[in-house]
């Protein structure tokens, strides 16, 4: 098949069609509006969605309640089709970039959306999430999936006068065998981040050791291999928005195509 016939046919035009985008976006929106209404009333089913990757949730939890959860995989398929449609539009734009370069802001938003979705699907399939990991100072936790070991080197909870924990200051170190990969003092909004691994101080507890109470840190350990790709997608999207805004005002100022349409 020649390059020209690959793009100049009905299938390609259908894949790039604006109407297809609107039909898919509308279908996802309507389905998610209906489905999400079920969420607050079924916390046992949907409450664990943030505690595990979507792929694991679909295989372990959703399969037990298909009547309540079917809209999530079906919505996922529709969003994926929307991303395919968006990618085709982007490729089609690339073919005529010389004459359509002024639209680069809009198409950066398109490719940003595709990258974020691919990253999300990748993380949902290949990532892991682990909560309630209690570590005393000096204790280590091997992460065999990544071949690294996490060690808590220091810990200090900061409490409000009421006794409520305000902040958890942890010094965390990541080792590969005996080699130190990273050492960070973590607190709120400052986690340990390394190659898709993120370690968040979430809470603390106390345990009796040698006749006295010792505080221990409770950590959330998540791994998502798609994080960097999602970040790249969000940068593309953010730059796309700024370029689109600049282009919009430039056109208005010049009186060039004064209407949006």
């Amino acid at each position: 098949m020649t390059k020209s016939s690959l793009f100049d046919n009905k299938i390609w035009k259908f894949l790039c069609s604006l109407k297809l985008s609107i039909v898919l976006a509308s279908a996802v929106t309507l389905m998610a509006i209906g489905g999400s209404v079920l969420m607050p009333f079924n916390p046992r089913v949907f409450g664990s969605l943030d505690s595990m990757p979507l792929g694991l949730w679909l295989s372990q939890v959703a399969t037990r309640q298909p009547g309540l959860t079917w809209w999530i995989p079906v919505g996922g398929i529709l969003v994926t089709l929307l991303a395919v449609n968006t990618l085709c539009c982007f490729i089609d734009w690339l073919r005529f970039i010389k004459s359509r370069w002024r639209k680069c802001g809009e198409y950066l938003i398109h490719i940003g959306f595709v990258l974020i979705l691919v990253a999300f699907l990748w993380g949902s399939k290949a990532g892991f999430r682990s909560e309630q990991n209690g570590l005393l100072v000096g204790q280590s936790k091997p992460l065999p999936q990544l071949g690294v070991t996490l060690k808590l080197e220091a810990f200090k909870p900061v409490l409000a006068p009421s006794g409520r924990p305000l902040e958890m200051l942890n010094t965390l170190a990541l080792y590969k065998e005996d080699q130190l990969l990273k050492r960070v003092q973590t607190r709120s909004n400052h986690p340990l981040i390394w190659n898709g691994l993120v370690v968040i101080p979430s809470s603390y507890g106390q345990t009796m050791r040698g006749g006295r109470y010792l505080p221990y840190s409770i950590l959330t350990i998540n791994y998502d291999p798609g994080t960097n790709l999602a970040f790249a997608g969000s940068i593309a999207m953010g730059c796309g928005v700024l370029l689109t805004l600049a282009s919009f005002y430039r056109k208005r100022t010049r009186g060039d195509r004064p209407d949006i349409v």
């Binding site: 949907f46 943030d50 999430r129 400052h190 993120v198 370690v199 968040i200 959330t220 994080t227 969000s234």
Partner: peptide, 15 residues
């Protein structure tokens, strides 16, 4: 980005 550094994931399935 904030959700990622605060909770460890960038999309929450919260309603």
């Amino acid at each position: 980005i904030w959700a990622y550094v605060a909770w460890g994931y960038y999309f929450s399935w919260n309603i």
